[in-house]
Computed example of a mutant assay.
Amino acid sequence: MNAPQKPTTSVRRAPATAVESLIADCLAAAGAPRDDAETVAALMTEADLTGADAHGVFRLPQYARRLKAGGFNRTPKIRVERTAPATALVDGDNGMGHLVVKRAAATAIELARETGVAWVGVRGSNHAGSAGLYAEMPVAHGMVGLYSAVASANHMAVWGGNELLLGTNPLAVAVPTGAGPMVLDMATTVVSYGTIKKHTLQGLPMPEGWLIDRETGEPITDPAQSGRGLLLPIGGYKGSGLALMLGALAGVLNGAAFGRDCVDFNADDTSVTNTGQFVVAIDVARFVGLDRFVAEVDRHVADLRATGRMQGVETIRLPGDRRRECRAEREASGIPLPEALIVQLDKVAAEFSVPPVFSR
């Protein structure tokens, strides 16, 4: 077994504006139209600001490499087909996932204004970053938002199996509250594969319960050995079943990839992934007045926060708390970048002859 990589834990902070401009410049230099590069950069930076570090600038080297290699369609013709009053299907034409799913969310919002609820499926897409970004979009329009996807690589087995046939297939749900969107954003595995990649980059050991060896079932804690592992589902067989059902809805229902058909975009920069996603928007006012809904949610949230606590628990934390706190802190203090990631970002900047992040 290889010796564990020496941990690299030192961090520097960069202003969000510097991170966003670096992403936009690199993606544009790799071949994306400038407007598209800026759209993707804004969404990636928002992922960093809200604490989804594995889906922000961390992904820039991979996205730039895939753009340069032709794995993404640089100038996609994203098509929206309204299939019924409350449904639509978006074909992303192999464009960058952020562009495709943002269009899907906008379509869901538009349809839900007319019909009260809308379900928009996606095919021909790609990895789109943080799930919470897209579930949150309808909230700004007085709606509840849901988002799910077939992950862009398989890192989990069906319960009891040892083949990589299921992804981390995320689920995000967002509802309006008086303090801002309450957002649940979760993978169907105990941790996302992006978290494994972060630990691998920095040489950080992993706790038991994240990964097991495909052959022996033994825990893997050395990130250098993660390629031999299976990610464990949340809640045992329940998480595996949830990943399966979300895969059927986001993949099979849309004519997108699922199971053995999925392409591992971490290892393949050129093949079309045909990633599937869906966005649902629900107009709150079709069920109860928006003000009343928000007031009632706030009342229940207050009850939950004031509940009696287990010994050793100081604060009850609810979905969305960390996103809001993280965003406020990082807007003020900058986005934390590990030194190992800075090295990679500086290499990408040099490759495309753009200023590095700490020269902006």
Score class of each variant (00 low, 15 high):
Tyr237Pro: 11
Ser192Leu: 02
Pro356Val: 14
Asp222Val: 07
Pro223Met: 02
Pro181Asn: 04
Arg13Ser: 13
Ala42Gly: 07
Asp222Trp: 01
Met186Leu: 13
Met245Tyr: 06
Asp36Arg: 07
Ala104Met: 04
Val191Lys: 04
Pro181Tyr: 01
Arg322Val: 12
Gly160Ser: 09
Thr8Gln: 15
Met206Phe: 01
Leu290Phe: 12
Ser226Glu: 12
Thr273His: 11
Ile282Asn: 00
Arg305Asp: 05
Arg74Leu: 15
Ser226Lys: 06
Ala30Gln: 07
Thr188Met: 14
Arg13Thr: 15
Ala104Cys: 04
Ala224Gln: 15
Phe258Ala: 10
Asp261Asn: 10
Val272Tyr: 03
Ala16Asn: 00
Ala112Ser: 15
Leu165Thr: 15
Ser353Arg: 15
Ala86Tyr: 01
Ser353His: 12
Arg292Asn: 12
Leu146Glu: 06
Val284Leu: 06
Phe72Tyr: 15
Ile335Leu: 11
Pro219Asp: 04
Leu246Phe: 03
Ile78Thr: 12
Ala52Tyr: 11
Glu314Arg: 14
Gln277Trp: 00
Ser152Asp: 08
Ile220Glu: 04
Gly194Phe: 04
Thr275Glu: 10
Val297Thr: 15
Asp25His: 06
Ser226Tyr: 01
Arg292Cys: 11
Leu341Arg: 10
Thr275Arg: 14
Arg330Thr: 14
Ala172Lys: 03
Ala140Phe: 00
Asn2Lys: 12
Leu318Asn: 04
Glu81Ile: 05
Pro233Leu: 08
Leu49Lys: 00
Ile282Thr: 02
Thr50Ala: 08
Asp283His: 13
Thr39His: 04
Val173Phe: 12
Pro338Asn: 10
Asp261Leu: 09
Asp291Thr: 13
Val173Gln: 05
Ile109His: 02
Met44Asp: 10
Gly203His: 03
Ala29Leu: 04
Leu27Asp: 11
Leu49Glu: 10
Leu337Ser: 07
Ala179Asp: 12
Ala29Tyr: 05
Asn266Pro: 00
Thr8Val: 13
Thr189Ser: 15
Leu164Tyr: 04
Gly255Pro: 03
Thr39Pro: 00
Thr270Ile: 09
Arg13Met: 04
Ala295Tyr: 06
Lys102Asn: 09
Gly31Lys: 00
Arg34Pro: 00
Val158Ser: 12
Leu49His: 02
Val272Asn: 09
Gly178Ala: 09
Arg309Glu: 05
Ala153Leu: 14
Ser152Glu: 01
Trp119Arg: 06
Cys326Thr: 15
Leu341Trp: 06
Thr50Phe: 07
Arg113Ser: 07
Tyr237Arg: 13
Trp119Thr: 13
Asp283Lys: 13
Cys26Ala: 15
Arg260Ile: 01
Ala248Val: 15
Arg309Phe: 03
Met1Trp: 02
Asp269Lys: 01
Val158Gly: 07
Pro233Gly: 09
Pro336Arg: 02
Leu49Arg: 01
Gly142Gln: 06
Thr221Pro: 03
Glu331Lys: 11
Ala105Ser: 12
Ala106His: 04
Phe287Ile: 09
Ala256Thr: 06
Gly70Pro: 04
Glu351Ile: 05
Ser152Pro: 08
Leu290Ile: 13
Asp298Tyr: 05
